[in-house]
């Protein structure tokens, strides 16, 4: 394990073009102590690991994993925050604005520092999310929500993060267009038929049934995205809950209570599509 750790430290050093003395200083170690630890592939103190994690924007756990992207770490170190890690650079169909609700929600509940720690897992700096029109692939939201679940976030909490979508979009051009619809049925029709590409270009959305008291929406992963990611599917249970939250609060654009959402089918459960049943609710979330 410590051999992996030292090969990662070496890779970070080389990618960032740092001398041993410079890297030792960044880790808070004397150069001699650094050399001693390296020579015998010894473990490093937690504070040195924390310094590395912060300096290169890498997750603590990834310091001894084979998944560390040293080029992304070097970009961060040299203040080139626009460069995404390779994992998130292909098949970029998601605008940053579509994940801002998650970041806002996590920050509200756990604070900014917690968000920064989570983002280190993906090696993406927080400043990347300052521009809502930047693009990223769907794997980011997948990884981020999976990580939240690992950290103990429940289905209900993931759903509530999705529900923050209304808060983060209501003043945007998309939100203003949605707000022109004044009844429950038409707001969902508009969401699927007219605006689905504005909030999610990774799925094809279809209106399977549209009644006054019940709407059924299908979300089918787009082949183009699968091909770009070279994956059969990218759908996960955790992203499904956040998506259900987004759908729930679409009613809020028409000044109505957030809707009830039931999952009927799911790609991650083995079906060919995600299918959601949406019903109006009388419970006010926003007033």
């Amino acid at each position: 394990m410590t051999q992996n750790l030292w090969s990662n430290i070496k890779a970070l050093q080389e990618a960032s073009r740092l001398s041993e003395a410079e890297l030792a200083r960044l880790m808070g170690l004397e150069e001699r102590a650094f050399q001693e630890l390296q020579r015998f592939s010894k473990d490093i103190p937690l504070d040195s690991a924390a310094n590395l994690s912060k300096t290169f924007n890498v997750d603590l756990g990834s310091l001894w994993a084979s998944t560390l992207d040293e080029q992304a770490a070097a970009s961060y170190f040299h203040k080139r925050p626009g460069e995404l890690p390779e994992r998130y650079s292909v098949g970029k169909f998601s605008k940053v604005r579509s994940v801002i609700n998650l970041l806002v929600g996590v920050r509200q509940q756990r604070g900014q520092e917690y968000v920064e720690h989570l983002l280190r897992h993906s090696q993406i700096p927080t400043t990347f999310f300052d521009d809502p029109d930047k693009v990223i692939n769907v794997l980011f939201i997948t990884d981020f929500t999976e990580l939240l679940a690992q950290r103990g976030w429940s289905q209900e909490q993931l759903f509530s993060l999705g529900q923050l979508s209304y808060q983060t979009h209501r003043d945007s051009a998309f939100g203003k267009k949605m707000a022109t619809h004044k009844n429950w049925k038409s707001v969902y029709e508009a969401l699927v038929v007219e605006h689905s590409s504005a909030f999610d270009r990774n799925y094809d959305y279809r209106l399977e049934r549209c009644e006054d008291s019940r709407i059924i929406i299908d979300a089918i992963p787009r082949e183009e995205v699968c091909e770009a990611l070279q994956a059969d599917t990218f759908d996960t249970e955790t992203t499904c809950y956040t998506r259900m939250g987004v759908m729930s609060t679409a009613a809020c654009y028409a000044k109505l209570p957030a809707s009830q959402v039931t999952k009927l089918r799911s790609v991650h459960g083995g079906d060919d599509r995600n299918r959601y049943e949406i019903r109006p609710s009388t419970t006010l979330l926003y007033s």
């Binding site: 806002v104 929600g105 920050r107 509200q108 509940q109 756990r110 604070g111 900014q112 520092e113 917690y114 909490q157 509530s160 993060l161 529900q163 923050l164 808060q167 957030a258 979330l285 926003y286």
Partner: peptide
Amino acid sequence: SEQGFIFSRFSTMGTR
């Protein structure tokens, strides 16, 4: 704002 303490039960209500 530092540690996200007391308002976590109201996460669907809006911004801080």
